[in-house]
């Protein structure tokens, strides 16, 4: 039997296509630019903000996030490409290298994020024997320390100890005895270390009598005495010591002055160079003179 119920059309047409007044108003509201922007931008931002605020309002969650962040950071820093495995020192003698290794106590391997290169550079530069230092991390995980060493120019005998100084007067190292560096000239006296360049000039000028020089003595922290062997001294003036020394050397050259029995050549007064003979020299001279007169009289 055929079903009595009529077959319904699949989709019934809506009788009224008109929007209800509510939907009409909502549509107009939605098309209002301000409302639309608020709903499309403001509302999501608000929602995200509120939910984030709610989530972060709990202390334990905040800590967890913090811990997670720290852990992530550490994991990142500990990656093999950031690990420094050894320190290479260039331009330093072995003693200086050991010194540098001492003052920069790093136990490798170490992440490059944990290193303070500037501090390392400062520490290394602070060493007396180091003129300048550059520190960088080379590819392959090498901490490269390039050092320019100070070259000792003089030996300075101070009141307490003996030290090596470079040409600017900066301390390089201590030595136990002067004999350790016989090749370097010796300076001494109070304030000698502050006038090293002048001393070096004087020593350079005194090259012709180099083999006789014992050292330079700073007198009264203002002028130099050049001390030769046989306890001879050349007292140099405060100003123009090199010129005065050259005068002395000229005299020495022409009259063989320094090989005579002198104790002091006093050049402090430029106008009046003074010689002091040794105690016995005058007697010897007189004896020689009388002997010569006798010979002449005979």
């Amino acid at each position: 039997m055929r079903p009595l119920r009529a077959k319904r059309p699949a989709r019934r047409l809506r009788r009224d296509p008109a929007p209800s007044r509510l939907s009409y108003r909502l549509h107009r509201l939605w098309l209002t630019p301000l409302i639309r922007r608020m709903l499309r931008i403001g509302l999501p931002i608000l929602l995200v903000g509120v939910s984030a605020g709610y989530y972060l309002s709990d202390e334990t969650r905040r800590e967890a996030i913090q811990a997670w962040l720290v852990e992530q950071r550490q994991a990142f820093e500990a990656r093999p490409e950031f690990m420094v495995k050894l320190m290479a020192i260039d331009g330093a003698s072995t003693e200086l290298a050991t010194d540098i290794r001492e003052v920069v106590p790093l136990d490798f391997p170490l992440s490059s994020f944990d290193m303070d290169l500037e501090a390392i550079q400062k520490t290394v530069s602070a060493l007396d024997a180091v003129a300048s230092a550059t520190v960088r991390i080379r590819s392959g995980g090498v901490l490269q320390v390039s050092v320019v060493e100070r070259i000792p120019a003089v030996v300075w005998r101070g009141r307490e100890d003996i030290e090596l100084l470079d040409e600017t007067g900066h301390r390089v190292a201590s030595v136990i005895a002067r004999a350790i560096r016989p090749d370097l000239p010796l300076i001494t006296g109070d304030g000698a270390e502050t006038a090293v360049p002048e001393a070096l000039n004087i020593l350079a000028a005194a090259k012709p009598i180099n083999n006789r020089i014992r050292g330079l003595v700073r007198m009264g922290e203002r002028r130099w005495d050049l001390v030769l062997d046989r306890n001879q001294r050349i007292l140099l003036p405060e100003e123009n010591p090199v010129a005065a020394l050259e005068r002395v050397l000229t005299l020495d050259k022409t009259q063989d002055m320094l090989s005579r029995d002198l104790v002091v050549v006093d050049m402090r007064n430029q106008m009046r160079p003074t010689l002091r003979l040794a105690k016995t020299a005058m007697q010897d001279l007189r004896e020689i003179r009388t002997r010569e007169e006798r010979i002449d009289n005979q």
Partner: peptide, 18 residues
């Protein structure tokens, strides 16, 4: 009024402007 609402709403929708 309904007819006007229908037309206005559809036109607004097409214009995407109130």
């Amino acid at each position: 009024e309904r007819a006007i609402r229908t037309a206005v709403q559809a036109a607004q929708k097409m214009a995407n402007q109130r």
